[in-house]
């Protein structure tokens, strides 16, 4: 089921995973260190060239789902993992087939050191990604980080 990655991608994934892990371990209030693009606070500028907007975790979510996922993120950043998980579970109940809340929930489990659930949630998010390659790569990063947490290095390839 896991896709084979070439060695370069593998290295990148490992370093990203390491960053996420370290970020989680060093401080509860650390800001994101992964390559997640920031969320768009205002609509894209339409004055000039149609700028390519960076993909966001909240793409495709309804306003309710978006507000809960962002709230969960803020709570995660503040180290309130229980509350963050509660917000994301609410988002999942509302939009169960959107990958973003699953992915975010997996990130919380990773920070909590629950690597088996982090991996499973990463797989769940990936299964819902469809053709969204950005979500897919984020899910793969989560899975790789979780596998590293469990010292299953060979499977991260």
């Amino acid at each position: 089921m896991a896709r084979r990655l070439n060695p370069l991608t593998h290295d990148i994934l490992l370093s990203v995973a390491l960053c996420i892990c370290l970020g989680g371990c060093t401080s509860g209030a650390v800001t994101r260190t992964g390559p997640e693009p920031t969320r768009p606070d205002r609509p894209p500028d339409r004055s000039g060239e149609p700028a390519m907007r960076a993909p966001s975790i909240t793409d495709g979510l309804s306003p309710a789902g978006r507000s809960l996922v962002l709230q969960g993120r803020d709570q995660r950043t503040a180290g309130q993992y229980d509350q963050a998980a509660a917000s994301l579970e609410r988002a999942i109940r509302i939009e169960p087939s959107q990958p973003a809340p699953w992915l975010e929930l997996g990130r919380i489990r990773l920070l909590e050191g629950d690597f088996p659930q982090a991996e499973q949630l990463g797989r769940k998010a990936r299964s819902l990604a469809g053709r969204d390659t950005w979500i897919e790569s984020q899910s793969l990063q989560l899975i790789a980080a979780a596998l590293r947490g469990m010292r299953r290095y060979d499977e991260t390839q």
Partner: peptide
């Protein structure tokens, strides 16, 4: 006590 949402991949999606 929380009874968290947990998933286990059990079949090929």
């Amino acid at each position: 006590q929380r009874f968290p949402l947990e998933v286990v991949a059990s079949a090929d999606p």
